[in-house]
Design a protein around this nucleic acid. Structure first.
Lengths: 300, 300
DNA sequence: ATAATGTCTTTTATCGTGAAAAAACATTTT
DNA sequence: AAAATGTTTTTTCACGATAAAAGACATTAT
């Protein structure tokens, strides 16, 4: 099978949306930057668009002939990266119970189960290992450390250390820094979401991530910024799994964010520290309550 | 070439040293745990020892016939892991100048240069990426971020945060914790080294790592413990490269460690904090002075 | 002369394969 | 019967090969 052409398919789908907006497409390099792919892929896309009668293509002229129909799009699942597919399968296994700490992870078995080569699984596990949930035994299997209470506590300990420092750095940024404008925009989005929280509560997690990443970036420290990947991954899957009181939780979190933003804007370090601590405390609480108690039993 | 048998060769070399000590070898499973390899490898080793006339092997009896000679050992370089080989080559390139920030890293070229397959290089780069020195562009090349002043500052910022916390946790450990015995042992080793610093100064870095890892372990936080890998890697290569005033530097560091150990034993948090800060400050200074100024120029 | 298109080359992503090493199972020895 | 040895199976590690995607070079159009 070698390599799937998901990059092409995903870019094609996104390209279809451009057809609605204009009567003719821009140049190939321009499309490349627009869709974030190389010209090679753009040309493959254009070739297919021509073939399916979506556009007339002759050198520089790329005229839109008709609007894309639903069946012009490639199926969503064909646009996923292999590593996304592996990650999803792996996390499903991990969260869908039966994943006791200390359990062995078998590359070959995982690969067969997902239907991919072992190389891809190996590479995924190596990348995944930095999240602290698995560990490699040299020349042998991986060991699952488990999504335990201990893990959550260790994660939040670092998170709190990093975010308090980043928040302080943020508040100390000069008034003319562009981050203040970014913060204003995020504040506005929070206000909008707060108003319609009853229906849009599930949009919070995406906003949450953008907000915290903005703050962490103020640390100007790659290790702090990169660590947010761990948090984001955990929260992403965690919230997919645990939907209890999602609306209430998010409503509280939005309010806390707004208080946090106000504190940042006040540039009063004491207030920032207090607002940040308060939010992190409730975030930790939410994460901890969602972990089954079984996992709190002594490990190893 | 498939897979080199370096595990066997390394275990064989270590196994040879056992022959000096006894007249007959223990059971296969026992040898396995002793050398940290599987029985399969043990049996391959025994087979060769028999073949070269080192032992007489018949089922349970493994009698030593003669002492190993220098030429019985496999050459050192054949006992290295592939990832060690790749890491060394890569770091040599990186430190031996000509590695400007922003430079592209080519998997294929690296693999050809080192004489290994691309898969191994890919896996190495993925593992290496957590050190924050390289970054991947999706579907494209890796980018070298460079061993710059900024990198050193970001690294030490985290190190200081983590170590201060670990040191405080260490000092708070109950008197009957086994770590105090470990600390006593390390203290003794430091005293011995201090006495013979003139000749043994190059043994410090190994002691340094053991000392700091002991302290970090007191945090009981996997992210803190794991982060020491980054520090250890940087210091390892950094000190190989920069030998200026090595003796003096290490002499100072040993004295600082002894003061740090005394502070820990006093269990006075104020003293611990002061001693830790003092040592970390000079460690940072040493690291920073060794980075060429060119690297301090504005990046990107 | 600049920027696009057309064409060719290189690199990345992924697989299947095979030897090294581990692990599991069967048999023998104490 | 517990622990060792003997034998077989499974898994990991690393490679070369190949399609997808990126990138480089050549040519053409504005």
């Amino acid at each position: 099978m070698s390599k799937s052409n998901n990059v092409y398919k995903d870019a094609y789908n996104r390209g279809l949306r451009l057809l609605d907006e204009t009567k003719s497409l821009p140049s190939e390099p321009e499309l490349g930057t627009l869709l974030g792919v190389s010209r090679t892929t753009i040309r493959t896309i254009l070739a297919r668009m021509e073939e399916t009668g979506l556009i007339a293509w002759n050198k520089r002229s790329k005229t839109v002939l008709r609007a894309p129909r639903p069946d012009d799009f490639f199926p969503e699942e064909e646009t996923d990266t292999l590593s996304q597919i592996i990650e999803r399968s792996f996390m499903r296994r991990l969260l869908a119970g039966g994943a006791e700490a200390g359990m062995q992870i078998n590359e070959l078995e995982l690969a067969r189960e997902i239907g991919v080569g072992t190389t891809s699984v190996r590479e995924f596990l190596i990348r995944f290992s930095r999240f602290g949930l698995i560990e490699k035994r040299r020349n042998s299997h991986w060991v699952l450390k488990g999504f335990t209470r201990a893990f959550a506590l260790e994660l939040t300990e670092i998170r709190e250390m990093f975010e308090l420092r980043s928040a302080a750095a943020f508040a100390a940024l000069p008034q003319d820094s562009p981050v203040w404008a970014d913060l204003d925009l995020l504040e506005e989005e929070h206000r909008l979401l707060a108003r319609e929280i009853a229906t849009r509560f599930n949009e919070f997690s995406e906003l949450d991530e953008r907000f915290h990443r903005l703050i962490h970036r103020a640390s100007h420290n790659r290790f702090i910024v990169d660590f947010y990947d761990v948090i984001a991954m955990i929260f992403h899957y965690h919230y997919q799994w645990n939907k209890a009181q999602e609306r209430e939780r998010n409503e509280v979190a939005v309010a806390e964010h707004l208080a946090y933003i106000a504190a940042l804007k006040s540039r009063d370090l004491g207030k920032v520290d207090a607002a940040c601590r308060k939010h992190l405390k409730s975030a930790r609480h939410t994460l901890l309550t969602s972990i089954p108690d079984r996992a709190a039993l002594p490990q190893q």
